[in-house]
Amino acid sequence: MRASSSSSPVLTLALAAGLVLAPPLAGATEPAPVPVPPTDPATQVAGSVEGMTRGTGIVPGVGGGDGPAVYGTPDAPAGAPSRYVALGDSFASVGRIVPAAWLDGPSSCVRTADAYPPLVARGLGAATFVNATCGGAITDDLLGPNEDGVPPQLDALDAGTDLVTLTIGGNDVGFGAVIDACAIRPNAERAGVLPLVEPMADELAEKFDTRAGCPDVVERQAPAALAALDSRLDEVYAEIHRRSPDARVVAVGYLTAVPDDATLFAEPDCAPLTVVSAEERDGVRRFQEDINRVVAAAAERNGATAVIPDEPGHSMCAPVAERWVDLTGMQTGAAPIHPTSAGHAHVAQRVLGALGG
Rank of each mutant, 00 (worst) to 15 (best):
R211T: 15
G283L: 01
V85F: 09
T43W: 03
A16F: 06
A69M: 02
G253D: 09
A100M: 08
A205K: 04
L157K: 02
N292C: 02
L233S: 06
Q331C: 00
A251S: 14
L21W: 02
A306W: 06
S93Q: 07
P339M: 14
V164M: 01
D162V: 12
P195K: 11
D269A: 15
D155M: 01
P319N: 06
G47D: 05
V294R: 03
V236I: 10
A42K: 10
C214M: 05
T12P: 02
R248T: 15
M52D: 08
T167L: 00
H241N: 12
E203C: 00
L13H: 12
G123D: 06
A101V: 08
G88K: 08
E147T: 15
P9F: 07
E322I: 04
S4Q: 10
A354V: 04
T161G: 02
D114S: 09
Q288Y: 13
G136I: 09
T133V: 11
A127K: 15
G343F: 12
A127W: 08
T112G: 08
L163C: 04
D290I: 00
A92H: 08
G333E: 04
P312A: 03
V34M: 02
P81G: 10
R54N: 01
V62Y: 09
N131Q: 03
L11A: 03
R111Y: 05
S82F: 00
I168V: 15
E311Q: 14
G47Y: 11
A159W: 02
R350P: 01
G313F: 09
I168N: 02
E30W: 05
L355K: 03
V34I: 14
T73N: 10
P24K: 09
V217C: 01
E203R: 13
P35Q: 05
Q221S: 04
A304Q: 07
C270W: 11
L196S: 11
